[in-house]
Design a protein around this nucleic acid. Structure first.
Lengths: 238, 238
DNA sequence: GGGCGTCTGGGCGCTAGCGCACATATGGCG
DNA sequence: CGCCATATGTGCGCTAGCGCCCAGACGCCC
């Protein structure tokens, strides 16, 4: 029983559009309910839709030939899936799968590209979004290289909490291991530690954040950097 | 005494422009000689120029608050520095410093943005470039996470060789350590190994590639992926 | 030709995380 | 009620890379 914090389910990118364009855009969107584990994109397969999560959130991951994965970013109501289209390519670079089930808006790629071409506001907004993604991606690369697992886990849990709009969501140790690029046992160890310190509680894949402040203290500084980058370029009024 | 492979020094992005636009663009560029170690960009400082290396090449790095660095990509005659401008932001996300000294073309940001706005060909080309950068960035994140130092070093040396247009260039173990995000001693160990196998030879910062094929065999598969991504989106005729 | 700064090599103890194998708990389902 | 797939906990030996320190080696400059 997730305690939802959000009042109405909107996507913040869409909400940042000026009124008339927002109306028109929304009219072209289709509401859809995403279920846990659903794959929305795979490299090599052309994209059929772009997705704007409202309640749901997605995990974007790379996959090495050897089969090991690495989570690259989370996409919730603050973002969108399908940014390769902003660059005129309909082939996604990353795997996208649903982590938090729930509502999203989606649009077919062709009308989306038309809208994009037509709307200067969309272009401006999504270019900034891409800029922020780039910064976060570079930051994540360094984070994976330098920071200890426990700090990275804490950071990831907070990112997920924000996107789930809830202090509890579903993700097993196994899945977390794939996302953070470590063994499952590594997650078990780090997560037990966080649980022992009463920062989180989990039970068969259901994770609940108990002490956000404490988690923030355990998380690496990358969290702050990500947040401030987003705030600077996507929440300013200009 | 570098044995140069390139006939004439051009930048491949610029070369990909259609004739008339290329002429006009080149006219707005200023040739400049870059010297080793020069800083061309730092996050927080607005960009004054965009750079198109011809003979020279640059290293783009992130810096963590703690001071540890991580090289994110190399930019030579196949690319440009300043892609944040493609997204309408004049604040660079990465540190850019000159690794291979030599000629480059540069243009002030304002005229560059004007050219960009004016030329559909430039837009198309640079969007694809950015797409490839994104893919390589995600790949690099995974590479840093999973691959052993020796393989990563071999890969980096090959990337540098391509951009230096020469089988020998200058970079000390210390600098390599910063770029690959490890201790200097780690580089010494990995490099000695490569030298012992007669793949490279180095002496006080001067590195010479002796056996490119052997290095390729030691390098991780990311090298291939990077190359094929670039080839697919920036060397095709469409 | 003496001195110093830069570059490379090596040793030593330590830790995070790996790979593998196994043990337990738990919820759902027949 | 019993079974089983799923989820979590543990143990053990191992390795890559860390942090620290020092030693040699080379080149350049005075």
């Amino acid at each position: 029983m997730p305690t939802t914090n959000s009042s109405t389910a909107v996507n913040r990118l869409i909400a940042a559009l000026p009124g008339p364009e927002r109306q028109r855009f929304m009219a072209g969107c289709e509401p859809i309910t995403l279920t846990f584990g659903e794959m929305l994109a795979e490299p090599g397969t052309p994209l059929a839709h772009v997705y704007f999560p409202t309640e749901s959130f997605l995990s974007l991951t790379t996959m090495m030939n050897k089969g090991s994965r690495l989570g690259v970013m989370l996409v919730g109501d603050e973002g969108m899936m399908g940014f390769s289209l902003l660059l005129g390519v309909d082939l996604p670079l990353l795997h996208a799968s649903v982590l938090g089930p729930g509502q999203a808006l989606r649009m077919e790629t062709a009308p989306f590209c038309r809208e994009l071409k037509r709307s200067a506001a969309w272009q401006h907004l999504l270019k900034r979004y891409l800029y922020v993604m780039l910064g976060q991606l570079a930051q994540a690369a360094a984070c994976n290289r330098f920071h200890l697992l426990e700090a990275r886990l804490a950071r990831w849990l907070l990112l997920a909490q924000d996107r789930a709009h809830s202090d509890c969501f579903h993700v097993t140790h196994e899945l977390l291991a794939q996302i953070l690029g470590v063994r499952r046992v590594g997650i078990t160890k780090a997560a037990s530690m966080l649980q022992r310190r009463k920062l989180i509680r989990y039970h068969r894949g259901d994770i609940r954040i108990l002490d956000r402040g404490g988690l923030e203290a355990s998380a690496c500084s990358c969290l702050r950097l990500d947040q401030s980058l987003y705030a600077q370029f996507l929440e300013s009024t200009r």
